[in-house]
């Protein structure tokens, strides 16, 4: 039996890698993948807790998240493609139209 803590440490590690990647990389696709990492880190901790508490609702929630994430990923990629077609780049430093 692997103790809960190990899962949580894994989850935290994956989450941190996700944050680090999101904040440091400039390629929007990599940033996007980092977001997915963070999402999956949450999934890991949810599954772990679910197993630990012997409560299946955590699993159910994870399925939901995966479904929504899939939808989100496709929309996100579509947006990125649209952006790329418009700006011919995937570099986020050049995407500052929201500047106030």
């Amino acid at each position: 039996m692997v103790p809960l803590n190990w899962y949580l440490i894994l989850s935290a590690a994956v989450f941190s890698i996700g944050i680090f990647g999101f904040l440091t990389r400039r390629n929007i696709i990599i940033m996007f993948m980092s977001i997915e990492l963070m999402l999956n880190a949450v999934n890991i901790s949810l599954v772990a807790f679910s197993h630990y508490l012997q409560d299946l609702r955590g699993h159910v929630l994870v399925f939901f998240i995966i479904t929504v994430a899939a939808a989100e990923a496709s929309i996100g990629l579509a947006i990125i493609i649209a952006l790329f077609r418009n700006k011919n780049t995937v570099h986020v430093d050049e995407m500052n139209e929201m500047k106030g």
Binding site: F22, L23, M31, V92, D93, M95, N96, M98, K99, G100
Partner: peptide
């Protein structure tokens, strides 16, 4: 004055 905070760069916001 406030708008200076809005750089428009996603990563600034995320940071």
């Amino acid at each position: 004055q406030l708008r200076r905070l809005q750089t428009g760069l996603l990563q600034h916001y995320a940071t």
